[in-house]
């Protein structure tokens, strides 16, 4: 009896609090009505999403959330960051807990189709690598036959590892770990010969060691891990907004539009592509339910793709990731924004 009364009271108060909701399926309208973007992020991953001592979030994925909020709501600070663990991220998006998932998630077939997500692009091309102590004297992953390897359970990395060793006719002894920090401890304590995870994670881990020089990251990248933001299936307009916000950031770098010169270029740029992007000539924003300046605001929020990369994970930061595959297509990378016209 008591249980039902309590639950009843809770449900009633929830209904009262939730009165006046927007129509289901129209994420843009919901976000606008709420005045806040609910962005699902990693609870804490160096360089990608990290709250500081005052609870202010920063990082590579966070910058994308800010760009979308700036485009849609006109204010990059109107984001509520919802931390989502590896187990809850996709259900969190599917159940409507968040509007947008920017949580270093690999774009795979089954996630895109079976889990009913829409990946809207790739903001970081990652791949799985190995780190070994220099003293092991190994210079290639092909020499790891029979090695003990620290591997995080329940991730795509675990499957990639098995695939790779099978394909190369080698054996290995897995040491299962639960989290990145535990993996570092095990690896440093000598519980395994090699530690494997995404190359970006390896670089950050190695940089934080007491003696980074004692460890090497092997050259082989054994998997494709295209990390990208995702939205729910079924709301194509919202997916378009997220997708083109990402393209706007990438295109801005290509055309040399930065957070510093954006105001000036909006007024004086002679490049028609830049004029369209910044809303000086055509009104592209109207086609996705936004105003003229949407892309301008998105770029101004934390800078273009290159600026975001440099400020959060680039070579000037302690993590020190090189652009590599993530360079612009003009620089030999894979970052390629579709044309704005």
């Amino acid at each position: 009896m008591k249980t039902t009364v309590f639950l009843g009271a809770a449900a009633v108060s929830a209904l009262i609090a939730g009165a006046g909701f927007a129509a289901e399926g129209d994420t843009l309208a919901q976000v606008k009505a709420r005045g806040e973007l609910l962005c699902g992020v990693n609870p804490g991953l160096v360089g990608f999403a990290s709250p500081d001592a005052n609870g202010n979030w920063s990082g590579f994925d966070i910058s994308f959330c800010k760009a979308v909020a700036a485009a849609v709501l006109g204010d990059a600070s109107k984001v509520k960051y919802i931390p989502l663990t590896g187990q809850t991220r996709f259900t969190g998006l599917a159940s409507g807990e968040v509007d947008l998932l920017a949580r270093n998630s690999t774009w795979t077939f089954s996630r895109d189709t079976d889990l009913k997500l829409d990946f809207i692009g790739v903001n970081y091309y990652d791949g799985q690598g190995f780190m070994v102590p220099k003293s092991l004297g190994v210079s290639s992953a092909k020499e790891l036959d029979g090695a003990t390897i620290c591997i995080q359970t329940g991730t795509t990395t675990e499957l990639n590892l098995a695939d790779y060793f099978k394909a190369n006719n080698m054996t290995y002894q897995p040491v299962n770990i639960d989290s990145n920090s535990e993996g570092e401890q095990q690896y440093l304590a000598g519980a395994c010969d090699a530690y494997t995870t995404d190359a970006s994670g390896l670089a950050a881990t190695r940089a934080a060691f007491a003696n980074p020089g004692d460890h090497v990251i092997l050259p082989e990248i054994i998997s494709k891990e295209p990390l990208g933001p995702a939205v729910r299936h079924g709301d194509s307009n919202w997916a378009d907004i997220a997708r083109w916000t990402l393209y706007a950031l990438i295109a801005a770098e290509e055309y040399g539009v930065t957070s510093a010169n954006i105001e000036e270029l909006a007024k004086s740029s002679q490049n028609p592509e830049v004029q369209r992007l910044l809303g000086t000539t055509d009104d592209l924003g109207k086609m996705i339910g936004l105003d003229k300046d949407w892309a301008k605001r998105a770029i101004a929020a934390s800078g273009n793709y290159g600026e975001i990369f440099a400020a959060t994970i680039g070579e000037q930061t302690p993590i020190g990731l090189a652009r590599g595959l993530n360079a612009q297509w003009t620089q030999g990378g894979l970052m390629y924004a579709m044309p704005f016209r």
Binding site: N42, V46, P83
Partner: peptide, 17 residues
């Protein structure tokens, strides 16, 4: 775990266990 992960996600404290 939660707060520790937050603390470790800032590069200054990454590696603390």
């Amino acid at each position: 775990k939660g707060i520790s992960d937050v603390v470790r996600s800032e590069f200054t404290w990454k590696g603390i266990y």
